[in-house]
Design a protein around this nucleic acid. Structure first.
Lengths: 204, 204
DNA sequence: TAGATTGTTAATCGATTAACAATC
DNA sequence: TAGATTGTTAATCGATTAACAATC
């Protein structure tokens, strides 16, 4: 299963929810493709993996398709997520996830003792970093978001992996080294802006 | 020129600067590869495009290589960037770019009149959204960052493109439709976290 | 039915890696 | 020099798209 496919499924689901809000009942691959910015063949190919079939007459039934995608992507129960680093980026992420109604919940946020610790930020209790191991292990958290400074990224990853985290979103520009069994998503804002600037110059 | 190559060059430059801080004079492709998480062949292939040659004895001279990469990636003068949306994510980006010493500067930030407008956030003046056209056109800004809510993303993109922006970083989960000549970078944090959660579940 | 869309395979495309002669 | 690394091509790999019989 390709990483890109998983990402697109998440995107399709969001678009489908929008269509549902507009009181639409079904949708064709080309419409979904247009909105997601991919080809219709791609959409049909992606949707095959979630085990829901459309039909040539009416396309895909939106409600059933959302259910199938969610069934494929989501855990049957709430999945807890830990956030390391409650600076401005960490706060932004907390507020994005606060009550977003998915099965993903940031239940633990950590920062160095002096900082925002022992406070509550947009509904999430923020703890001193020293409690990381105990809380992550205690709650059985398997997903970690790293939003500390670049220099602290590797140390944060090491500590998370040590207590059982299997998947990490790295929001720093630093590349982190992890064992093969750990999944890493790199989300480097600075790099994206630099790349955007490069293309703006090229197209000028 | 592949988008991925541009991103990696930006990454190599950051790593090279780290190595320079450690008083190293030169570096081999495999060392750069290890730190960037790619193959040595990839590094050598990427470095060819910036027009700097290493040599079989001593590898790549760090100072000269940084200069070559910067010469390739950066504009000769300061490149101004506009930010739309000064919520928590917008503020996080502003603080990341405040005095980062590159040729990229966020010189204009916009938000709806009521919000943070007419204030100064981490060194950047924040203006009411109504002034967008005048300021972006006046300063000749070609790069825009969209950090508004999903529903407002398309409108923000349209307004930016209307006044000459050629490259956009879209930080919302919404996909935006743009003319062919405009470059878009999508940076969807929610999608990355969902994907990370999926893989955590798979590897458990 | 007629016609558009589906599921799915084959063809295409592009990016990554392996390999190696040239070279310091 | 000897040996490791470079620049660069060919081979591989994977992902995307084109195409089409099946189908509602």
């Amino acid at each position: 299963m390709s990483e890109k496919t998983i990402g697109r499924l998440s995107q399709y689901r969001r678009i489908l929810k929008e269509l549902l809000d507009q009181s639409l009942g079904n949708v064709y691959s080309h419409e979904l493709a247009r909105r997601a910015g991919v080809s219709a063949a791609q959409v049909r190919r992606d949707l095959m993996v979630v085990g829901y079939s459309g039909n040539p007459h009416s396309g895909y039934e939106i409600v059933a398709l959302i259910k199938s995608i969610s069934n494929f992507l989501d855990d049957s129960q709430v999945q807890r997520v830990a956030l390391i680093g409650v600076g401005s980026l960490g706060r932004a992420i907390l507020s994005q996830f606060a009550g977003n109604g998915t099965r993903l919940q940031i239940t633990a946020a950590f920062d160095t003792s002096g900082n925002a610790s022992s406070s509550v930020v947009t509904g999430c209790r923020c703890r001193p970093i020293e409690e990381l191991e105990q809380v992550v292990q205690g709650e059985g958290i398997k997903v970690g978001l790293i939003a500390v400074s670049s220099t602290e990224a590797q140390a944060a990853a090491d500590r998370l992996i040590e207590v059982g985290v299997l998947s990490i979103v790295n929001l720093t520009p630093a590349s982190i080294q992890v064992p093969d069994y750990v999944h890493v998503e790199n989300l480097d804002i600075t790099m994206s802006v630099e790349r955007a600037a490069f293309y703006a110059r090229q197209r000028d």
